[in-house]
Structure formats: structure tokens, C-alpha cells
Design a protein around this nucleic acid. Structure first.
Length: 420
DNA sequence: TCTGGGGTCCTAGGACCC
DNA sequence: TCTGGGGTCCTAGGACCC
């Protein structure tokens, strides 16, 4: 058996842990720039507020219903997610952390009665220890476990967990699940399937593998097999290293100031490089991308991306920032308002002692030590405690008007150090 | 006026090789 | 006038996930 533990409206639940005044009332958590809704309390859901709804369309209802609105506070959510995962881990042999608020759980080799008991124990312990309500569904495959998790979410009498192992019952449940709600079937595929009359998960499951293959390719067939109880996706305990690491932001108002854009790119490079070092990797290709504002050029968004191959793979923030900022300096166009920019570290491989270049001046080891200190200081005193001067200092280009206090993570005063 | 961010995998097509 | 077959690698774009 495979379980899926899914935190209920996670971001809202996190805010509620520290602010009891948010309990029992409609609450929304917003995306960056306070742009749109990314988490809703059940009360907000029942007011008909959709996921992804832009904030500016909700002004009236927020006022009338007294909805509490919060900017997202990802440092807080990551910290609480960590506690949730640790609690689950402590009760079971192995888990796979699938996303910030979800984990697959391996229940292999545990008998049915024990599985049910353990599942409800996990639910109550996470609530008691961390204060986060979760739903836990169990079945034969990851895809079926995903389906199973939707039941305790909708039916409070299940008290948070549900074991879905009877095939007659599974089919009855699948019959009521729209095909587009199945994990792995997105908007495009579901539109295609629905026009062919394949509207429910059960109908999809009843198709032939040939038909599914011709409609959706190999990935569709995997989803189809999983719905039939055939495991295609195993539990991966050790998350594999990232193949690319990206950081990007949409600016609340857009910027045509090249200096600001370059500062932002430098910051994104530094964040990405920090993650790269954390996984012990080096990158040999950096990609910059720019989206122009849709409010210029009669709604047409111009996208540009520039790939920068590196002579030698690196994880050094200073080298990367230098490369990125000089490339950006040459590529930004005067007069264009940039709305979104980002950095992708690509072609990542494990860091190994590398052959020195023929005409290398050395100094690599020194750079490693410096990066190590940089990471240590920033881990201890908070992100951005020490930055590369190219990043500039605290010029917020994104908007967060409704931020909750830093309940569980400390964020000390900024120290500026010139690393050039 | 105002609509997020970070990932993975697959496929098709082009360039190139022998 | 006639113009092969098989393979790899890379990239861009599509689709999907939370």
C-alpha cells in the first residue's frame, strides 16, 4: 500500500497555527506581488472564491464578507512543512516528500488492520504536534492514493484518513471523478478526452492501452496503468538532485531601469547558486530570460532568453554573477519595460575535483572557502545577510502588503559586505 | 491599475556523423 | 538524370505537477 499525506489548505493552515483569530473565518493567502489567490480556507472556498483568482476582482467580496487576506510567507511555510514531514517520518519506515505540503508514504508489508490504525495515528499526531490538519489516502499506487486522499477532504466523518483497497468500491469512486482531476491528466488532455466522451476516471480506465497511447502517449499509459492498480511510479526516498535550478520574479510594476534589472538578476543568480552548492552541484550553462510588460507594445509580450555556456562548470556566486551581469548589460534594450526576469542554472552535474585549465590562475579553493562562509553566515543570520554588491540593497520590486510576522524564522538586520 | 514560481519529462525536428 | 540508412545529440516547445 502507498499512502499520500496532503496538508489541508496548507498555507492558510500555517497562518492559523500562529494566529488563532484566523480560525473559523474566511482566509486567503496571496501569490507574490499579492497578485492572485493561492490558498483558501474552507470558509473562503464556500464563498465561491476560486484558486488563482486575481485579488483586484475580489475587493467587494472581501469587504462584504470580512475575508482576512495575507501575503505569502514562504519562509514560514517551509519551516512548518519541515516539521510536518519530520513527524510523519518518525512514524513510518519511509516517505517521499513530493511537494511542500505532500508526502507519499510506504506502507509495504504492514497488514490491513495495522495500516488503518497507523494512518489515523499519523493524522492525529501531525495535528497535535504541528497544528496542521492533513488528509491521508491509501491505495495500491500513487495515482490511486491521490484519488483516495480526496475522500477524507470531502467527508469529515472519515476523520482524515481513508483506505481504498476494494475494487468494486474503487470503480464506484472513479466513476464520480472527472477525468481531468486524475493526477497526470491536465487541461489539454482532459479537454481531448471529454470531447471523445471519456468524461470520468472510470471511463478512462476502461479504455484500451492502445487507444490511450494514441491519445496521450506513454505518459498517459502510465496514468492508465496506475488507475488499474499497476505500479508505474515507485516511492523515491532520496530526492534526486535537481537538473536545473531557477529563480525568477514578476515585478509588481515592471522596470525599464537596467541597473535595477541587473541587480535583480544578480540576486536570483545568488539564490540559485546557493541552492546549487547545497546539493553539491556545479553548472555549466546559465540561461537568462526576460519578459517585457504586456502593457507595452499593445499587449504583446516579448520574451528573450540568452544561454551562457561556461568554460568550466562552477558553483561560485561571484563568477556566476559576473557572467550574468555582463551578459545582461549587453542584452537589455533601452525603453523596454521588463515585467518578469529570471535565471536558470542548467546542465548541473555533481561537483568533483576538476582538471585545472591549462592557463588557469588557480584560486579555486579560495573561492570555495569564501562560498562556504557566505552560506554559513546566510544560514545563521538569514538570507541576504551577506550579498554580492551587484545585487544592490533591499530594493523591493515585488509587493507584499499583507505579510504576517516572522513567527518561526528569524530575519536579522541586513549587513552589507562588498565582495567584489 | 491590479493575474506566482519552480520544477520534470517527453517529443519533434534539426544538425551532424559514419 | 540520378541522390541511403542508421544513429546520436541538442534544443525548443508542450504538457503536466504543486
Amino acid at each position: 500500500m502507498i499512502g499520500l499525506a496532503d496538508c489541508n489548505n496548507f498555507y492558510v493552515s500555517c497562518e492559523r497555527v500562529f494566529n488563532p483569530a484566523l480560525k473559523g473565518v474566511p482566509v486567503l493567502v496571496l501569490s507574490n506581488n499579492d497578485g492572485c489567490v493561492i490558498s483558501r480556507s474552507p470558509e473562503a472556498k464556500s464563498l465561491g472564491i476560486a484558486m488563482g483568482e486575481p485579488l483586484f476582482k475580489l475587493n467587494a467580496i472581501i469587504k462584504i464578507e470580512g475575508i482576512k487576506v495575507l501575503s505569502s510567507n514562504f519562509a514560514l511555510y517551509a519551516d512548518i512543512a519541515h516539521r510536518v514531514m519530520n513527524t510523519i517520518s518518525s512514524l513510518v519506515p519511509s516517505i517521499e516528500i513530493y511537494s511542500i505540503d505532500e508526502a507519499f508514504i510506504n506502507f509495504d508489508g504492514i497488514e490491513r488492520e495495522k495500516v488503518i490504525e497507523l494512518a489515523s495515528q499519523i493524522v492525529s499526531k501531525v495535528l497535535k504536534n504541528v497544528g496542521i490538519p492533513i488528509s491521508l489516502g491509501l491505495s495500491y499506487t500513487k495515482t490511486l492514493a491521490k484519488v483516495a486522499t480526496t475522500l477524507p477532504k470531502r467527508n469529515p466523518y472519515l476523520k482524515g484518513s481513508f483506505l481504498m483497497d476494494d475494487w468494486d468500491e474503487i470503480d464506484k469512486i472513479l466513476e464520480r471523478i472527472p477525468v481531468g482531476d486524475v493526477w497526470g491528466i491536465g487541461k489539454r488532455s482532459s479537454a481531448k478526452l471529454v470531447t471523445l466522451g471519456i468524461e470520468s476516471a472510470l471511463k478512462f480506465k476502461s479504455e484500451s492501452s492502445m487507444r490511450v497511447n494514441s491519445l496521450m502517449g506513454v505518459r498517459g499509459v502510465r496514468v492508465w496503468s496506475e488507475l488499474r492498480g499497476e505500479k508505474c511510479f515507485g516511492i523515491e526516498e532520496n530526492s534526486p538532485d535537481k537538473k536545473e535550478i531557477r529563480t525568477s520574479r514578476t515585478f509588481s510594476r515592471g522596470s525599464s531601469n537596467h541597473e535595477r534589472v541587473i541587480e535583480a538578476l544578480a540576486k536570483f543568480t545568488a539564490y540559485s547558486a546557493q541552492k546549487l552548492r547545497a546539493q553539491g552541484g556545479v553548472t555549466s550553462k546559465v540561461i537568462l530570460f526576460f519578459y517585457s510588460s504586456p502593457f507595452q507594445n499593445s499587449g504583446k509580450v516579448e520574451t528573450r532568453s540568452i544561454a551562457l555556456p561556461l568554460e568550466r562548470p562552477t558553483d561560485n556566486t561571484l563568477q556566476l554573477v559576473k557572467r550574468v551581469s555582463s551578459a545582461a548589460l549587453n542584452s537589455l534594450t533601452k525603453g523596454v519595460v521588463y515585467k518578469k526576469v529570471g535565471v536558470i542554472l542548467s546542465d548541473i552535474v555533481k561537483k568533483t575535483p576538476l582538471q585545472p585549465l591549462l592557463f588557469d590562475s588557480g584560486g579555486c579553493e579560495k573561492g570555495d572557502k569564501l562560498m562556504h562562509s557566505l552560506d554559513e553566515i546566510n544560514a545563521k543570520y538569514g538570507r541576504d545577510s551577506v550579498v554580492v554588491a551587484t545585487e544592490g540593497v533591499d530594493k523591493r520590486l515585488t509587493k507584499r502588503e499583507y505579510l504576517s510576522p516572522k513567527y518561526s524564522t528569524k530575519w536579522e538586520d541586513i549587513i552589507v559586505v562588498n565582495c567584489r
